[in-house]
Amino acid sequence: MGIDLIIFTVLSAVAIASALGVILSKNPVNSVLCMITCFVAIAGHYIMLNAQFLFVVHLIVYTGAIMVLFLFVLMMMNLNADIEPQKRNWLKYAGAISGGALLLVLVAALRDASVPAIQSGNATDIGLIKNLGKTLFTSYVVPFELSSVLFLSAMVGAVVIGKK
């Protein structure tokens, strides 16, 4: 058993356990913390694939920004297990059925999909920031520029709204 496989197994176990924790824990704050753990474990998978830029952006955007906002809202509204409203029965059935349907779709898709062997470790360097930047600024320059304008306008918009 190589070191790659050991790390992969540990990361996957952490990711799955914490993902289960997100849905199983009663306290919303614990759910958010489990989700953060899950994101960090997935970021670990990115680094195993040598996708360094994706790894760090995943950490910055998801664990650093979005989950902080989640936690912020939960803490400000002080949601606890005690005040969680009891869900109706039909809601539970609807959830179970739609979840099961999604599982069916995923299994069906996986059955037909051809899974290429994943190159391990440093065999690929497509995820390095230099290669990624070159691809973004040559093949995909228009969508990239458009989305950057969108982000800039969102940022300026936040300032403008804040000024009112």
Partner: peptide, 18 residues
């Protein structure tokens, strides 16, 4: 010596708020 050095610092700073 990773080629995302500074971004790593930004990521950790972002997590420091937790």
């Amino acid at each position: 010596d990773v080629n995302i050095g500074v971004l790593w610092i930004m990521a950790v700073v972002g997590m420091g708020v937790y």
